[in-house]
Design a protein around this nucleic acid. Sequence first.
DNA 1: GGAGCTATTATACGCTTGAATAATAGCGAC
DNA 2: GTCGCTATTATTCAAGCGTATAATAGCTCC
Lengths: 204, 204
Amino acid sequence: MNRRTFHRAPEGERRQELIEATLDCISEFGLKGATVRQIAIRAGVTAGLVRHYFDSKDQMVAEAYRAVIASLTEKAKNVEGDPATRLKEFIAVNFTEPVADSRSVSLWAAFISQVRVDPVLAEIHREGYLAFRNTLQELLSEFLAAKGRTASADECRRHAIAINGLVDGLWVEGCLAGDLFRDGELVSIAMASVEALIGLPIEN
Amino acid sequence: MNRRTFHRAPEGERRQELIEATLDCISEFGLKGATVRQIAIRAGVTAGLVRHYFDSKDQMVAEAYRAVIASLTEKAKNVEGDPATRLKEFIAVNFTEPVADSRSVSLWAAFISQVRVDPVLAEIHREGYLAFRNTLQELLSEFLAAKGRTASADECRRHAIAINGLVDGLWVEGCLAGDLFRDGELVSIAMASVEALIGLPIEN
DNA sequence: GGAGCTATTATACGCTTGAATAATAGCGAC
DNA sequence: GTCGCTATTATTCAAGCGTATAATAGCTCC
């Protein structure tokens, strides 16, 4: 009866590994296939450990969702430069890895489908969506101001909603069936569309 | 030991009921919660019957997905009138029940999340997406022609991709968090955005 | 280098799952 | 009516689920 050897992971690290393993399993096998045992295997530990770090599997999954939302929005937020560059980058980032990736959209969809079922996930979604849209709205407002075009808050809001929808939709379709599009086609369409939507070229 | 009474359903009807029950369960409890037993309860039969109509639960779920795709696209196809009216209706229909409904998007997302996992679902998705986009592209082409504007096939394709993304994205966000938008706001944004994208007003 | 703490393993439990099988009852044909 | 077909029910099964508990071994500290 040889007990397998292991090492005690440093503070917080194992938690992170478990969350990452959870996401791997969800993207590969779906929410159904992301069982405690499968997740443990992926993380290289035994199943019992999950309950040492999380109150329940559901709680772990919820935290994993937070991680997804964070990864989808953080890249977009940390863009620097003048307003035009930032707006351009904000859009482009959604069509570049790691955001533009079938794993990302698969995770996103898996959680979205649970939003109606699970109030905890619904709240996480809501926060994430609003954060994303508000960032975009602010970016847009600054861009228009820099271009010397006055735009009411409501106008910015409507533009932000439209662009957000456009980017989300193209992102989903691109990730799900990337082979239906030519290289760089989506980002090119997205950029041209945004220019059409706001009626201005996005140049530096 | 009283055996419960039942009636033998006419040709194909029971099948349809089972598929509908499957969709109900997926939208209410998620793919995980859509168990054979739960589906049977919803359909008012016992669990064993499922395997009388389908080779496996997975096969039933795949057929249910076909039904979802069909319901999402059929409303959009059967629009009549002049090109402008048809284009307008095609877009509007996505923001009107039953398409614009949290159940619809919940189902859509549940299946999307499995597209990476299950090749059968992937193929169904692909077909559905292409059918939708091609319909839109054709509609667009006719509309532009009626307006006397020449547009290359490639131009139409790019417009169709953009509009499809826009509509999809707005549809998802609207269904998931409808309370974030005012009444009729989304369809109004969608319509204005499409006009901006193609650079023409959509009027009869 | 031994003691103490706790992260980790190992095992077991009760429940649900999808599926297989056998018994039964609805219903059309005659 | 009742016979025969099969749609439907009822029951059972093995596998896998999330969770609970107890034993163990890796580290830190002295």
